[in-house]
Amino acid sequence: MESPEALRDRLLARFPGVSVELVPNGSPSGQVSLRISPAGLREVARFLRDDAALALDQCSNVTGLDSPDREVVETVKESQPGAPGGPPVVIERKQTRIEPGHLEVVYHLYSVARRHGPVILRARTGNRTDAVTLPSLTPVWRSCEFQEREVFDLYGVVFEGHPDLRRILMWDAFAGHPMRKDYVEPDDYEWEPTPHGEVLAKARRHYPSAAAPGAVQPSP
């Protein structure tokens, strides 16, 4: 199979309007992936499937990833007029900036016919709130159907063109996306205090009499 660099160049030549970016991998696994701009994702996927040399006929695994908003602290230098006649005074100010996060979907593609792989595709959403739409690859590979539903359910990525986009593991009335990094689980469902940790702290808040650490409860 061609190298990821060669594949990227071939894709760039074939799809001029689509950005294809090589994502390095610091792990010894050496599994390099290609980040595709969402607009061209489905065309690229279809090409990869139908290309005779690649024949990536199986999308094995679909993964959602979450990168929450990050707070970046920057130091800003400002010069202000100093005392009359004197030089301007430079004031350093710490400024925090929110770097917007994004959701990402990773597709692991293999070829059953040619017995090679993986080619890894990634696509990012604009942000984590209102621009969370990505094109669905279910029309290209059926195997994405349930897996994309799972990513929709647990991460909140909306797949455009998915035939049946509903929650799959959580129930329909459930609010929120539990695999997101900033998901806060409800305080009190299936309360089960363990001897320590967050759960115990929560239990203390709710049931002050019920959860003394390590101490054994008096028998009723």
Partner: peptide
């Protein structure tokens, strides 16, 4: 029968 007395062992 007792969740804490019986199963939380000291």
């Amino acid at each position: 029968t007792d969740r804490f007395g019986g199963l939380l062992l000291n």
